[in-house]
């Protein structure tokens, strides 16, 4: 049985993760004029991370659907 409030906790964790990967230290790593398959790595990084975040968000939101009524 899942704990009530797990949805909130997952979203909170995801939020912190998103802040982290979009923060300057991580961006510094890719903030270089280097291309991968013709595409600048910064662009690639940002869009891949963005897509990943959306996928995780969908995963976190949809998987716990049966728990919905017990939230809060």
């Amino acid at each position: 049985m899942k704990r009530p409030g797990i949805l909130n906790e997952r979203h909170a964790a995801l939020f912190l993760f998103a802040i982290m990967v979009l923060s300057p230290p991580f961006l510094f790593i890719f903030d270089k004029s280097v291309q991968f398959a013709g595409i600048p790595v910064l662009y690639l990084y940002l869009f891949v991370v963005w897509a990943l975040l959306i996928a995780l968000l969908a995963f976190a939101s949809e998987l716990s659907r049966p728990e919905r009524d017990r939230e809060e």
């Binding site: 949805l7 909130n8 979203h11 909170a12 995801l14 939020f15 998103a18 802040i19 979009l22 963005w50 975040l53 959306i54 968000l57 939101s61 939230e71």
Partner: peptide, 9 residues
């Protein structure tokens, strides 16, 4: 996108 991650609360 960040805001919508915490939209639920």
């Amino acid at each position: 996108t960040l805001t919508f991650i915490i939209a639920w609360f």
